[in-house]
Amino acid sequence: MKRVFHRLTMKRRGPFIALAMVASIVTVGLVARRAKSEDAFATTCETDLPSVFERCERGHENGSCMFVPEHLGDVCQAGCVMHFCPEQVACAGEDPIWCAPCTDMRGARFWANLDIAQNRCDGKLRVWENEVDEAVYHECYAADVESRCPELAGREWWVGFRGEMGR
């Protein structure tokens, strides 16, 4: 009886082992593809910064600034570029967009922090797979932004931001 059970167990394990092997190969492939993609984006920052600016323009399909009101388009674009290419657009001189503190909604750092928080919360909560409660997402988002800019903690920055966005 033990031998029959062992053979049945092994027969059942076979597909699971195969599935686990396929899953690990796919995972390694995806990680390698993602790393390759990030390397390509870093290269774009170094060699073709104007294309990054173009992808970050207000209204660009599937871009960070797709639905941003016109009066916030330039600063959103600056934040998007700062998010992807921070070394290329660091504060130099006294340009108010690039040099503004993280608390200033008219500065790139504020908007870059929003982009980073969105990416992190999307990944953490796996929004592409799950229905995520708006309150849970907001809690993740606000906490991440405030961890990058502690000066915003305890302030009503979210209300001001939503007002500027027309929501």
Results as ranks from 00 to 15, higher is better:
residue 100 A to I: 02
residue 151 E to P: 00
residue 5 F to N: 12
residue 107 G to I: 00
residue 105 M to A: 01
residue 112 A to F: 03
residue 70 E to K: 14
residue 62 N to E: 07
residue 123 G to C: 11
residue 19 L to S: 07
residue 158 W to G: 03
residue 74 D to A: 12
residue 157 W to R: 05
residue 52 V to G: 05
residue 38 E to L: 11
residue 24 S to P: 03
residue 111 W to C: 03
residue 49 L to W: 02
residue 11 K to P: 04
residue 49 L to S: 04
residue 56 C to S: 06
residue 23 A to T: 09
residue 132 V to Q: 09
residue 10 M to I: 13
residue 104 D to P: 02
residue 18 A to F: 04
residue 7 R to C: 03
residue 156 E to A: 09
residue 30 L to H: 14
residue 126 R to W: 11
residue 16 F to M: 06
residue 119 N to Q: 14
residue 42 A to C: 00
residue 67 F to P: 07
residue 42 A to K: 09
residue 46 E to F: 02
residue 40 A to F: 07
residue 71 H to S: 13
residue 87 E to N: 05
residue 83 H to W: 01
residue 82 M to D: 01
residue 41 F to Q: 05
residue 3 R to Q: 13
residue 162 R to N: 06
residue 99 C to I: 07
residue 159 V to A: 06
residue 46 E to G: 03
residue 79 G to P: 01
residue 132 V to D: 07
residue 89 V to F: 01
residue 97 I to L: 12
residue 107 G to T: 03
residue 114 L to N: 06
residue 81 V to E: 08
residue 82 M to E: 07
residue 118 Q to K: 07
residue 70 E to R: 15
residue 113 N to F: 05
residue 29 G to Q: 10
residue 165 M to N: 03
residue 55 R to S: 01
residue 47 T to G: 04
residue 142 A to R: 15
residue 83 H to K: 10
residue 16 F to L: 10
residue 76 C to N: 07
residue 4 V to I: 14
residue 1 M to S: 15
residue 153 A to E: 13
residue 74 D to E: 11
residue 129 E to L: 14
residue 108 A to C: 03
residue 108 A to E: 04
residue 125 L to N: 00
residue 167 R to C: 10
residue 120 R to D: 15
residue 153 A to I: 04
residue 151 E to S: 00
residue 28 V to T: 14
residue 25 I to G: 14
residue 1 M to N: 15
residue 68 V to G: 02
residue 19 L to C: 10
residue 88 Q to C: 02
residue 28 V to F: 12
residue 120 R to C: 12
residue 82 M to F: 00
residue 67 F to L: 05
residue 53 F to L: 08
residue 156 E to G: 13
residue 76 C to E: 11
residue 62 N to V: 13
residue 36 K to M: 06
residue 108 A to Q: 06
residue 10 M to T: 14
residue 25 I to D: 06
residue 47 T to L: 08
residue 152 L to E: 03
residue 70 E to M: 15
residue 97 I to G: 03
residue 151 E to N: 01
residue 96 P to Y: 10
residue 120 R to Q: 14
residue 74 D to G: 13
residue 35 A to W: 12
residue 117 A to Q: 07
residue 31 V to G: 09
residue 164 E to K: 02
residue 98 W to V: 01
residue 127 V to Y: 05
residue 89 V to K: 02
residue 154 G to K: 00
residue 32 A to S: 11
residue 88 Q to K: 12
residue 100 A to Y: 02
residue 125 L to R: 07
residue 78 A to W: 02
residue 118 Q to G: 15
residue 42 A to H: 13
residue 12 R to I: 15
residue 117 A to N: 04
residue 37 S to M: 06
residue 28 V to R: 08
residue 33 R to P: 08
residue 153 A to P: 07
residue 73 G to D: 12
residue 116 I to F: 01
residue 65 C to K: 13
residue 18 A to L: 13
residue 162 R to E: 14
residue 5 F to M: 04
residue 151 E to H: 01
residue 11 K to R: 15
residue 57 E to Q: 14
residue 145 V to A: 05
residue 42 A to N: 09
residue 147 S to M: 06
residue 62 N to F: 06
residue 13 R to T: 08
residue 90 A to C: 05
residue 81 V to A: 04
residue 93 G to H: 11
